[in-house]
Amino acid sequence: MRGFTRVRRRVVNVVMLGLTAVATGLTIAVLFFILGYLAWKGGSSINLAFFTELPRPVGEAGGGMGNAILGSAKMLGIAACVGVPVGLLAGIYLSEFASTPAAFAVRYATDLLNGVPSIVIGIFAYTILVLPMKHFSALSGGVALGIIMIPIAVRSTEGYLRAVPGSLREASLALGATRASTIARVVVPAASRGIVTALMLNLARVAGETAPLLFTALNSQFWSPGVTQPTASLPVMIFNYAISPYEDWHRQAWAAGLVLLALVLVANLGARAVLGSRARTT
């Protein structure tokens, strides 16, 4: 009886621990499956035309997503103009100046904003920009993406600034520097590598956002000059092409998916290589 129990306990031990290994293998396999499947389905449709030409009408083979790639780049530029200064300066405030109650309010708001679903941020951008301007625009899409960037930009900046040793600040102050110049010339440069990498990761993250663009930037089959017209973007293009009934468009959707995923993964791996094991995106 006792021997049986001991054997059973050993078997349970091995089986359960084995299952945790299987679970880990399965989860990681999903990542490689997604990568492999996209490469298989989309790889053959990627050529120079994909990056430079406009989408062709249904039935005409060829064409590309040049306008969507440019549109995504344009909106990421606008997003950076919104998210980077707010994230940096609010992060500096939290790390260097904040008094307890004010810091609590800012951190609370940041966490709250971080939890807001991206589609709800899209509604916000719609009501503050699309409604008054009376049409869809790259500007509203970019602002929506920028707002999505803010919470993580604030918290990552704060984190990297806090990691700068206090003795560095004290040394600078002891040499007669003001707090402002200590921050600008000692603290921020010391943390700059982490901050810049975190911002790049943040941009890569919003580059894949689709939901907030659906009714802010909308979509377009043409080049969209300026920032006040409906503008195509890679994620929205993938969505529209994926749910369309046309075989040609499905191929383009896979190719666009591959480009987008490659971009996001390269940014992630690059960032981690720069930062080492300290990097965390979530």
């Binding site: 989860t27 990542l31 993938i238 994926a242 993964l265 992630n268 995106t281």
Partner: peptide, 14 residues
């Protein structure tokens, strides 16, 4: 596993 979180949701949809 973290990279799985970085995959855009539209690609999961695809």
């Amino acid at each position: 596993v973290d990279l799985l979180a970085a995959v855009p949701s539209v690609i999961y949809g695809l």
